[in-house]
Design a protein around this nucleic acid. Structure first.
Lengths: 226, 226
DNA sequence: GTCTATAGTTCGATAGAC
DNA sequence: GTCTATCGAACTATAGAC
C-alpha cells in the first residue's frame, strides 16, 4: 500500500475523530447547560455556543432538543445503573446462597450514584436527574419509567429478600423515600455548606455516601411495624 | 347617609373585591403553571390565559415574572413554616422543661408540609418547592436561603437538643437528608403508584406522613457513631 | 385597574451552499 | 459533516387609551 492509501486512511481516521468530537462536545455542553438551567431554561443557541459549533449541527446529530435531552439521560443512566447492577449481583454472589446485609445492598445503590460526582459530568448529571425525578410532566415520567423503573424493581426485590419482616407497602415506601433522599442530596446545592458555615461540604463524596447509607439502612429497618 | 353614599360604599367594596380577585387569580394560575411546567417552562402568556386576564395586568400587580415567582414562594413558605414553628414550640412547651421526643419534633417538621397536600395549592406548591430545592442557580439559592434557612436552623437546634449523642456533622447531614427526602417525596410524581401497580398512592397524605416520620426518626438516630 | 397593541428579543427548526 | 442565513412563532415587557 502506497503513501496515497495511507493518506486516505489517516484522513478518514481524522474525519471520524472530528465527527465523534463534534457530537461529544455537543452532548457535554448540553449536559452542563441542562444541569444549570434545566430543560426549558436551556436553548439550542446556548448549547451551540458552549459546544463551539453551529446551531444546525445539533439538529443534524441529535435531531431535536427533546431527543438531545433523552440521549443524555440514556447515556448516563445506563452507565450508573450498570455498575449498580454489577454491585448488586456481587452482593448476592458473595453471600453464597445466603442473604447479603442490608448495608451491602444499600452501598450498591448509593455508591455508584454519588461517586459519579468525582467527574464533572457526574455532578452535572446529578442535577439533571434531581430535576427530572421531581417533575410530573408526562415526558419526564416517561423518561423515569424507561430508564429508572427497571433498576428500581431490581433493588425493591433485593430489599424484600433482606428485609423479610417488612410488608409490601413498607418496602415500596422505603425504596421511594431512599431514592428521594439520594437523588435530592446528589444535587449538591451547597446548602449544607451554607448552613454549617462552611464546616461541611456536599462535595465530599465519601462523607455523603457514609451518611446516606447509614441513614437509609436505619430508616428502612425502622419501617417495620413490629 | 343617603342612597348615593351607599352606592359609593358598595361600589368601592366591589372594586376592592375585584382587585383582590384579579391578583389572587393570577397568583393561583401561576402556582398551577409553575408547578407543572417549572419557572422557565411557564410564560406570562400562559399565566394570563389561565387567570383569564390581560397579560399587562400581571406586570401591574406582580411587577415581573421573577417577582411573581417569589410572591408565591413567600406566601406559601410563610404559611407552612409558621405552622411548623407553632408545632415545634408546642413540643417544647408540653415537655415542661424536659426534652420532647424526636418523633414529636419530626412530626412538627413533616406534617404541616405533607398535609398541605389536602388542598390543590398545596400539591402545586410542593412541586414548585421540590424543583426549587434541587436547583443550584444563584436566584434559587437566594430564595431557599431567604425563605427556608431560618426554619432549618430552628429545627437543627431542636434536633441537637433531643439527639445529644450526635456530632455537629451528623446533625447537619441528618437534617439535610431528611429535608431532601421530605421535599422530594412531596412532589408526588405517582411513581410509587406505578411501581406498586396501583396498590399504593402518593396522594395518601396520612400514609406518607407515617412512613416519612418513621423512616426519618430511625435514619437520624442511626447516624450516631456510637 | 384593566385593556389593546406592539416593540424588541429570542426561540426551535430548516433550507441550501460547501 | 459543517456552515450561514432565515423563517415563523413565542417570549417578556411596556406604552398608552379608557
Amino acid at each position: 500500500m502506497g503513501p496515497i492509501g495511507q493518506e486516505i486512511l489517516i484522513s478518514e481516521k481524522i474525519k471520524k475523530m472530528a465527527v465523534t468530537k463534534a457530537k461529544d462536545s455537543i452532548l457535554e455542553a448540553a449536559e452542563r447547560l441542562f444541569a444549570q438551567h434545566g430543560y426549558s431554561g436551556t436553548s439550542m443557541r446556548m448549547v451551540a455556543e458552549e459546544a463551539g459549533v453551529a446551531q444546525a449541527l445539533i439538529h443534524y446529530h441529535c435531531k431535536s432538543k427533546e431527543h438531545l435531552y433523552e440521549m443524555i439521560i440514556e447515556k448516563r443512566s445506563t452507565m450508573i445503573n450498570q455498575i449498580r447492577r454489577q454491585e448488586l449481583k456481587r452482593c448476592f454472589d458473595e453471600a453464597e446462597g445466603g442473604v447479603p446485609s442490608l448495608e451491602e445492598i444499600m452501598q450498591s445503590f448509593v455508591r455508584p450514584a454519588i461517586e459519579s460526582g468525582r467527574y464533572s459530568w457526574g455532578r452535572d448529571f446529578s442535577q439533571i436527574l434531581a430535576k427530572l425525578a421531581v417533575s410530573d410532566e408526562t415526558r419526564s415520567r416517561e423518561l423515569v419509567h424507561k430508564y429508572y423503573d427497571p433498576i428500581a424493581r431490581e433493588f425493591i426485590d433485593a430489599f424484600k429478600k433482606v428485609l423479610p419482616d417488612l410488608s409490601h407497602s413498607e418496602v415500596y415506601w422505603g425504596y421511594l423515600i431512599t431514592t428521594s433522599a439520594v437523588v435530592s442530596s446528589m444535587a449538591r446545592t451547597g446548602r449544607i455548606n451554607r448552613l454549617s458555615d462552611g464546616s461541611l461540604d456536599d462535595g465530599n463524596n465519601e462523607q455523603m455516601i457514609v451518611r446516606l447509607v447509614q441513614y437509609a439502612v436505619n430508616g428502612m429497618r425502622g419501617l417495620t411495624t413490629l
